[in-house]
Amino acid sequence: MFRATAPVRRPHPVGPAALPRLVRAAVHTPPEPGEPYRPGDAREEFYAELGALYGASFDREQFAASGRRTSVELAYGALDALGPLSAEEAPEVVVVAYAAPDFEHTELVASCVKRRLPGEPLAFALSDQGGLAPFSALRVAVEYARRCGWSRLLLLVVDQGTQPFPLPAEPSPAAVRGDSAVALLLRWDGGERPLDGLAQGRPGAALFEAWPQDAALVAGAGLADCPDLPPHHGTSAEAVAGRPATGSWAALLTVDGGDRPVVVADYDRERDFLAYCTLHTGELRHR
């Protein structure tokens, strides 16, 4: 059970700023294709009813050509790839982040994932913020850790490539083109110290106040047409297009930033919003 009194505002956090540490990570991209589609799926009636109010029709051809792996399956794949978690490693908070909703409307990923984990983490989901949802999820997870005295966080990012309704044409950032899930196990040992190197908002000088100039950069697909970023030491990895939520975080796993911090950043052109966060990944590199 999660139980708490109201969070208390601490106007002057003590100590130097701290960064979350990425300690384990895994990406799951299932092989294509899925099982052959059988028209008349019971979900079709639900899609027809849901789309009617919004003038959207079920796109059977697109649906049949997709993987049709539920978000729970994808999340489980990433968890399996992450490997077993002991009680000492068990996350205290789990945030599921996604850009595109699951085509399966009878399952809740956060509840199902929690069932697979040791302990009793607080688990929930953030969405409807395009590729920026994982950045919000990380921020929220750290703030819960700070408030509750936790140190182990699990961020599960899912791209659901199977959509019942016609997808926008590329190069829209909302055009999710495949299935993927990324599991990121992080440590936050900052206690009440301020969280460093993380912000989101309209691009501008003020947004980048905490941008660490010595960091390696993992660039989300949206940064291809982004306003100017602050000085950095070049891009270490770039996300592939068509994975609005997981792209940047899958690319993060390919980076050897050495002992430098790593900035993950992405820009959502439609929202004119940019988000970045800074992580220590040294422990991941040494595994």
Partner: peptide, 19 residues
């Protein structure tokens, strides 16, 4: 309206039984 206390528990047996 000031919040004083909160509690929640997710019973995961029902995670895939939303319907």
């Amino acid at each position: 309206d000031r919040m004083l206390g909160y509690a929640s528990r997710t019973h995961t047996r029902f995670g895939d039984e939303f319907i």
